[in-house]
Amino acid sequence: MLKITALPTNITRTLQAGGPDANGQPPERCLSDGGGNPCRHCLRYIPKGAEMLILAHRPFPAPQPYAEVGPIFLCADECPRYDGGEMPEALQGSPDYLVKGYGADDRIVYGTGAVVEQAQMLEQAGQIFTDPRVAYIHIRSARNNCYKARIDRG
């Protein structure tokens, strides 16, 4: 069984309170234009006119050559963390995604990355997890490489 994992609540609450992002800067605050700004905590789209945060995020425990930093969106107000179940709204809006496996050392496991149709994402993740070196998988934008969520063994 596979589990889509959203950004942890403790990290999200720190950022929502103005804590520094991966670049050491406070998150930028702006209003969502409703054009598809997916919150990485609730994994829903931030509604038009709602306040949101834009910030640099590094979804790894420490800096190292494979620890990519990129922009993400968060709801500015507290939101509930996605808790599994159905495919989250924020992962239904694109026809395809980049998925790639990482080892326990938080480095890319070469040969696991693929751009796959949204409907095939979890099936592809299951294939990636057949490699015993893979500890977890990132879901990223196929067009901009932005971090969306993580897939873990459930």
Rank of each mutant, 00 (worst) to 15 (best):
N10L: 07
N10S: 12
T12A: 15
R13D: 15
R13Y: 09
L15G: 03
Q16H: 03
Q16P: 00
A17W: 05
G19Q: 10
G19V: 07
D21N: 03
A22K: 01
A22I: 01
A22D: 00
N23F: 13
G24N: 11
G24L: 08
Q25F: 10
Q25N: 13
Q25S: 05
P26A: 11
P26E: 06
P27H: 08
P27Q: 07
E28C: 00
R29T: 15
L31I: 04
S32Y: 07
G34N: 06
G35E: 14
G35F: 10
G36R: 04
N37S: 15
P38R: 01
C39K: 10
C39L: 07
R40M: 07
H41I: 01
H41W: 03
R44D: 06
Y45W: 11
I46C: 06
I46S: 02
P47N: 07
P47D: 11
G49H: 06
E51G: 02
L53A: 10
L53P: 00
I54S: 12
A56S: 14
R58P: 02
P59Y: 03
F60W: 01
F60G: 00
F60H: 04
F60Y: 08
P61L: 02
P61W: 01
P61Q: 03
A62P: 06
A62F: 15
P63Q: 13
P63L: 03
P63C: 05
P63F: 08
Q64C: 06
Q64P: 02
A67S: 15
E68M: 04
E68C: 02
E68G: 00
E68A: 09
V69D: 05
G70R: 01
P71D: 13
I72D: 01
F73A: 02
F73M: 07
F73H: 13
F73L: 03
L74M: 11
C75G: 02
A76M: 10
D77T: 13
D77A: 14
D77C: 03
E78W: 13
C79I: 08
C79S: 14
R81G: 04
D83Y: 09
D83M: 13
D83F: 10
G85V: 04
G85K: 03
E86A: 15
E86H: 14
E86Y: 11
M87V: 12
P88Q: 05
P88M: 04
E89A: 01
A90M: 08
L91G: 12
L91H: 11
L91V: 14
L91D: 13
Q92V: 04
Q92S: 14
G93A: 12
S94W: 04
D96I: 00
V99Q: 05
